[in-house]
Computed example of a mutant assay.
Amino acid sequence: MKRFLTMIFLTLSSVLFTRIEAQERVSTWSLYAEGGATMVHGLEMLSVDAAPGMNIFPEIGAGVSFDVRPWFRLGLNYDFSKYAREQRFSEFQPLEIPDGGEELAERHGGLAYARMWTHYHAADLTFEFNMMELWKNRNDKRFDLYVGTGFGWLFAKGNTYDISMGHERWSESYKETINTWLNAVNTRHKFNAGYVPILLSAEFDISPVITVGLQGNYKHLLDSGSDYVPKGIGTASAVLRINL
């Protein structure tokens, strides 16, 4: 039994790790899955004294690629993640003075806490070029380095939770009124936005069927006029690809 297991192990090892000869991938398909972490920048709402881990969130994705030539492929990609901001103020953030016929004599208080989160789905089409094909005479063709760009669309929704508190004194001709308030407001938001993806993917062929890699991806979002849309989303992930 021990000899049998040893033979199986040696056979699998020879399949997976034997030197891969140069293969011309022309008109072939591959499927991939990836997972990593993501971070956004350029939001109108900034983090203030936020809890640890409020700027980095896990990300998952999948896609399909079509190798037109060894140096060029098309990619159809999808990923899912979220981003959030939290504000814990050491001092009240003043609110706008409400409209009214009375005269506001004194006011103290304002926004004390705010938290915003947004989940998003992103899908894009990319045009990817294998930079390693510039070296046609390289001995080992297991390593590839793809750079690419394209166009995509982001679908997002989330909510913002605000807590404000304080007091105000109103003066009229014959009386004074003092109001003390504590308000908690939950506001939902939803938006769609186009983006331009920029990717860099380093990939290594373990076997003719299995490829592993590391990928960096940046989404430059187009201005949609919403305060909840960031300027960009950066992602770093590990990739497992199955070549069909």
Rank of each mutant, 00 (worst) to 15 (best):
A156G: 14
N186Q: 13
D223R: 12
S30H: 03
S171N: 10
F57L: 12
E91I: 07
W117N: 14
M1Q: 07
E34M: 05
V196G: 08
T187E: 12
S27Q: 14
S81F: 08
I97N: 09
G53Y: 05
A193M: 07
H220F: 15
V229T: 15
Y78C: 01
I8R: 06
T180I: 14
E86R: 11
R188V: 03
L244R: 03
L95H: 03
A202E: 06
G101F: 11
I8H: 03
G101C: 04
W29V: 09
K190P: 01
S30N: 11
G36S: 03
A238P: 03
T118M: 11
N192T: 14
T38Y: 01
V229Q: 15
I206K: 00
L244N: 02
G100T: 06
L16M: 12
L10N: 03
G75Q: 11
S30I: 01
E91D: 11
L5I: 07
Y78A: 04
S201C: 09
T126I: 09
P94M: 05
M45R: 09
S201G: 02
L16R: 00
S164N: 04
A84C: 12
A37K: 06
L46A: 09
T235W: 03
G100H: 07
F57G: 01
E203D: 10
F129E: 02
I178K: 10
I242D: 01
Y120P: 10
H220A: 14
F72L: 15
R107K: 05
Y218I: 11
I60C: 03
V229R: 12
N77S: 06
F17G: 02
D67Q: 15
H167S: 14
V48D: 07
R69H: 14
V185L: 13
F151L: 15
L5A: 05
E103K: 07
N183A: 09
V26K: 15
F155M: 14
L31T: 02
F191I: 06
F155H: 08
Q215E: 12
T177Q: 12
W135R: 12
R88I: 07
S30E: 12
H167Q: 11
M7C: 09
E59Q: 10
K141F: 13
L43D: 03
F57P: 01
S27I: 01
F151D: 00
D223A: 10
L104I: 15
P230Q: 04
K2P: 02
A156D: 11
F80M: 09
K82P: 05
P208W: 01
H189V: 05
V239G: 00
L200Y: 04
S90W: 05
L222H: 06
G109Q: 10
H189D: 04
G150F: 08
V212Y: 00
D223L: 03
L31V: 05
I206N: 00
R3E: 15
I56F: 09
R69P: 01
D223E: 13
L222S: 05
F17Y: 08
G158M: 06
F204R: 02
L74A: 08
W117Q: 13
S30T: 05
I97G: 00
K231R: 15
T149M: 14
A50M: 04
G216N: 04
